[in-house]
Amino acid sequence: MTEIPEHLLKRSKSAKAKKAAAAGAEEASTEDTSKIPRALLERSRAAKAKAGGGDAGGGAPSGGGAAPVPAGPSGGGVATLAPPVALGPDGHTQRLLTVVKSGSIQDIKSKPVDKVHTWPHLLAAEFTAALFIMAFTLIFSIFINAPLLTLADANNTPNPAKAPWYFLGLQELLTMFDPMIAGVTLPGVVLVVLGMAPFVDKNPSNKPEDRKFMISLMTVHLMFWAVLTLIGSFFRGPGFNFTYPWDTGLTGIFHL
């Protein structure tokens, strides 16, 4: 079965409750709560009895809302009804032959989607996020200054010379492979493979349990870069040789 959106369920629930309450009230005091004066009702009943030749007795049930409701879905899309009890205006019997359910003839292409107004539901969340990130950046900037070392000097190479942190994974690769591979081929391949992901991954599901392979692959990939970046940041001392951060200090963090 299709999933029924939450708001539609809620609406039908409240409508049902209302109907039940109304029916209860009607049963409790049919005549008293009716807006039609008792005298008029009496008169119409008498007139109907006359017109029907007296055979209809008390006349047709006055409550129009009491018409029989079609039975529940029978799967086939066509629900047949037992001969109805209601009588028409002239005492003729009316028969409801079939009820054709909408789904059996019409092809409904778009399912109803549970939606909310962007304002305030989404915008409020976005404003909050924007304020949060503003506040965070502001407070962080009040307490921690951006680094500014001495004037650039082409003749004075610092040891170690490091790239910005997001390239440190690449710089780390350079220590292991030929620069052609580490500096160009590998990052290029990574970007191209990432770009091809939607065309290679034909699995239509987006549920984590259906895509264990892709998720593990991505996790290994991300961890690979994260580890390289961390090593490049904290475990590389003078000459880009391996050191431990507790030997050389967390110098990397002051050079962002």
């Binding site: 070392l149 001495t150 004037l151 000097d153 490091k162 910005p164 390239f167 500096g183």
Partner: peptide
């Protein structure tokens, strides 16, 4: 964007970080 901004303070940090970064670029065939 981040990398190009890195050079602008023109201090030892930015100068050499960009040197290292652009050296990698030079390796492309």
């Amino acid at each position: 964007l981040s990398f190009t901004g890195y050079l602008l303070p023109w201090d030892q940090l930015s100068y050499w970080a960009v040197t290292v970064g652009t050296n990698m670029m030079g390796f492309s065939p």
